[in-house]
Amino acid sequence: MKLDVVISADNIKEEYLENKIVVVIDMLRATSVIITALANKAKEVFPILTVEEAFVKKEELLNLGLCPMLGGERKAMKIEGFDFSNSPLEYTNEKVQGKTIILSTTNGTRAINLSLRAEEILIGAIINAKAVAEELKKINKDVVFINAGTNGEFSMDDFICSGYMISLLCESDNHDLSDIAKTAKYIYESNINLIDYIKDARHFSVLHSLNLMDDLKYCCKKDIISIVPKVEKTSKSIKI
């Protein structure tokens, strides 16, 4: 299979994604939140672009008899009126089991919505990387790893996460890697300790300044969750 990497949401060319499998990565922290919430038995997650649209979606779902909860961030901070921030540690089984989550974040939910022309969209992070790699082997089609990035720019954390997944895929098979995919694989294999590598990243520094080290440590744990959430394009919701 052909493997490629897009380095930020601003670099997504929607027509390029047609007939390809996309893995959206925003490991700090939106995709880690989605994976964690669904692993803790949330019913589904709706990735929403704006705060206003999130409140509209909540009213729509309430009218359908559902019990939606709002989660997300702006500038890494909890949004006023929301139930959760963008910390995966808040999405516990006790709080989210059976619930529909409406999530709006600066980077990750935007990257997901810009990827809807792909054949299939998987949600990936370090915490489920091995499960994603195994799923991609089963699908066996060309893959584009979409890095959400930070405010439209390259993000070291998403890039090394892509590299880890590419490295896993290449353990047992030879694949056709683009130059940037080869670079991501090299970066990961040269920096196995993720926190040591990303500690100088801008987004890491922002979260560190907000005393979110527990989030950072959690999001850098490899392969602690075995589910692979997928986007259902008809409803635009994410489920297992």
Rank of each mutant, 00 (worst) to 15 (best):
E119P: 02
I102Q: 01
N93F: 14
A118H: 08
E94H: 01
N63Y: 07
L66W: 10
L64R: 11
F154D: 11
E120Y: 14
A133T: 06
S162A: 11
K130W: 09
L116K: 11
S104F: 03
L169T: 05
I123W: 01
E80R: 11
S104E: 01
Y164D: 01
L136C: 12
A118I: 15
F154P: 08
D83H: 10
L70H: 01
I112M: 06
I127Q: 10
A118R: 09
L169Y: 04
E120S: 06
E134G: 03
N113S: 08
A111W: 04
F145L: 13
N107T: 06
N151Y: 14
R117M: 14
L169R: 03
G98D: 12
F159P: 02
R110L: 05
N107A: 10
M156H: 11
K141L: 14
I123V: 01
V56I: 14
N63L: 14
S115D: 07
V144F: 12
L122H: 12
N86D: 06
E73A: 05
D173H: 09
G152T: 12
V56S: 11
I121R: 15
G108Y: 15
E73T: 01
L114R: 12
L61F: 10
L70G: 04
L169G: 04
T109Y: 07
E60G: 11
N174G: 14
K75T: 08
D157V: 06
V96F: 00
V144Y: 13
Q97P: 00
K58P: 00
S104A: 15
G124L: 02
I123M: 02
S155E: 08
A76N: 12
E94I: 00
N86M: 02
E119N: 09
P88H: 11
V144E: 15
M69N: 00
P68G: 04
E153T: 12
G98H: 07
A111R: 05
F159W: 07
N147C: 13
L70E: 02
L61Y: 10
P88C: 03
V132P: 13
L61D: 05
K75C: 04
G65M: 06
K57E: 08
T92W: 01
L70Q: 05
G163Y: 04
A111V: 06
T106K: 02
V96C: 00
I166H: 05
S167P: 07
S87G: 05
E119Y: 10
D142F: 14
E80I: 03
F159T: 03
L61S: 03
E171H: 12
K75E: 09
L64C: 02
T105L: 09
N128Q: 02
E59I: 06
A125D: 13
A148Q: 03
D142I: 07
D173E: 15
L136F: 08
N107E: 06
G98A: 10
E80Q: 12
I126F: 10
G65E: 08
M77T: 15
G72K: 02
F154V: 09
